[in-house]
Nucleic acid binder design. Structure first.
Length: 224
DNA sequence: GCGACAG
DNA sequence: ATCTTGTCGC
């Protein structure tokens, strides 16, 4: 993969806000040129923390079989605190190298956080999507912004997530009786396709496979 | 000023 | 996110 837009990460909140406003203009909410069997591969990326060190893991999977094809990991000292709305600046530094060193370039990258369901439409997934000019999907375990009505208790139910009068994502019940997940497009993909892909990546757990495995792997790194 | 707030 | 024991439910 190639970086097509980069910037310094250890910035103040004011600078971070400016960067987000600048990157926002580069987000594309539709798929660009792809065949009927797109995507053929999807990647999941996640970061775990321990003692001031951030551990990242990313895995590339075949789609829709979801067989693990390649894995890349990395760790880095944490240099940015967690600030709601600025998660990107804390996680992207350590996620960068694993993504760059992948031999198999994934068609879509699934991120553990929001896509455009963000105060400035620049959640982690959108940020990563713009930096790499790749399709990305935000898949979060809880809400950052937006209103929605609780989806039905049964697996498969969903409701829209709206923010400032716009539908920015979907609240998906991936397991009966279990807390739903929040899906929003990151970049170069439509809301509909983002949801379809995520649904196809869900096996028998709440979290879609690519992300579940990446989460597992990053946490394993934490123990060593 | 008060409450909300991805990971 | 991380820390951390037991415990409820399929």
């Amino acid at each position: 993969m190639q970086i097509i837009f980069t910037h310094p990460f250890d910035v103040s909140v004011e600078e971070a806000r400016k960067i987000q406003d600048e990157l926002r203009g580069r987000v594309v909410l539709e798929c660009v040129k792809h065949s009927s069997n797109w995507p053929e591969t999807v990647a999941g990326v996640d970061v775990a923390f321990r003692n001031g060190i951030a551990y990242a893991a990313c895995g590339v999977f075949s789609y829709p079989q979801l067989e693990l094809l390649e894995e890349k990991k990395a760790f880095r000292r944490v240099t940015y605190p967690y600030i709601p709305g600025f998660l990107s600046f804390r996680e992207i530094p350590v996620i960068m190298n694993p993504l760059l060193s992948l031999e198999i370039e994934p068609d879509i990258i699934i991120c553990d956080g929001q896509g455009i369901a963000h105060p400035r439409s620049m959640g982690l997934a959108s940020h990563i999507g713009v930096i790499f000019a790749k399709p990305t999907i935000g898949c979060a375990k809880s809400r950052l912004v937006g209103e929605y009505k609780e989806p039905g208790i049964e697996k498969g139910n969903a409701s829209t997530l709206s923010y400032r009068g716009r539908v920015v994502g979907y609240v998906l019940r991936t397991r009966t009786g279990v807390k739903p997940i929040f899906v929003s497009p990151g970049n170069l993909i439509s809301l509909e396709d983002a949801v379809k892909v995520i649904i196809s990546c869900v096996r028998d757990r709440r979290i879609p496979e690519p992300l579940r495995i990446a989460d597992k792997r990053s946490k394993e790194l934490t123990a060593k």
